[in-house]
């Protein structure tokens, strides 16, 4: 398993906690003796703009950037952002996307001017993405995060869902350990819960369309 490569293009909106996800996955790789590299976006990233992280696992990967058409998966913490980087997805790659849409201010500004305008929604994104892959799972990460006990764990819910993929090479226990190490002490419980609930959610969506790990789908608890 250690020599299997996996590249995931992670994207979202500034402030959603993408960097935490890449740190968790990367630290889990370090704990498991696997090689991982990332190409991250910092600096302007907290300014409600589109952000992305290239996350790559495998002993021979060298470029921190995923080539166009080279991502095994897109993990989108916001629905529109899944579409924004679609050129990175390899043919038949998996899209795990949050159903939540954060309307860009430019779009809202246009709506003031044009009464007939409607926002682009997650359904439109999914319809468009279906033209390049049939493996798309939409997750209500905010709803699940609230149920877990903290709306801010939306990112970890999404990680939980993706971690059920058979192609995701990092062992579960290492990911859980990395979550424990990577979040503030008082937030460990709620994040682990969000992670588990994200995994359970994959049962009803992701695991119906793409090969998940043994033990999935796992029963809801």
């Amino acid at each position: 398993m250690a020599d299997k490569e996996f590249s995931v293009y992670m994207c979202g909106v500034g402030g959603q906690g993408l960097v935490l996800l890449s740190n968790v996955i990367g630290s889990a790789c370090a704990l498991s003796g696997m090689r991982a590299i990332t190409g991250e976006q910092h600096g302007l990233s907290q300014r409600s703009g589109s952000i992305n992280i290239h996350m790559r696992i495998g002993k021979d990967v060298r470029s921190p950037l995923i080539p166009i058409g080279g991502a095994d998966a897109i993990l989108a913490l916001e629905a529109l952002e899944a579409l924004r980087y679609v050129e990175y997805l390899r043919p038949g790659g998996v899209v795990v996307m949050n159903s939540r849409v954060q309307h860009p201010i430019i779009e809202t500004g246009e709506h003031v001017k044009d009464k007939s305008a409607r926002y682009m929604d997650a359904e439109v994104v999914k319809t468009r993405l279906l033209q390049v892959t049939d493996k798309i799972a939409t997750i209500d990460a905010l709803g699940i995060a609230r149920k877990a006990g903290n709306a801010l764990t939306e990112n970890v819910v999404m990680l939980g869902a993706m971690s059920t993929l058979d192609a995701f090479p990092v062992p579960d226990d290492a990911v859980e350990q990395a979550i424990k190490d990577g979040v503030p002490k008082k937030a460990v419980e709620v994040n682990l819960k969000a992670f588990k609930m994200g995994r359970q959610e994959a049962h009803g969506s992701l695991c119906n369309i793409v090969k998940c790990r043994k033990g999935f789908p796992e029963p809801m608890t």
Binding site: V13, G14, G15, L44, S45, Q46, R47, S48, G49, S50, I68, G69, L80, E81, L83, R84, V86, E87, P104, I105, I106, E107, E110, M120, R128, L129, Q131, V132
Partner: peptide, 21 residues
């Protein structure tokens, strides 16, 4: 690949960095 992606992105609004809430 890029041409196809651009077609799919028709009407996708830009999301430049801006002032935080």
């Amino acid at each position: 690949i890029i041409a196809k992606a651009n077609t799919l992105k028709t009407g996708l609004p830009d999301r430049w960095p801006t002032f935080c809430p």
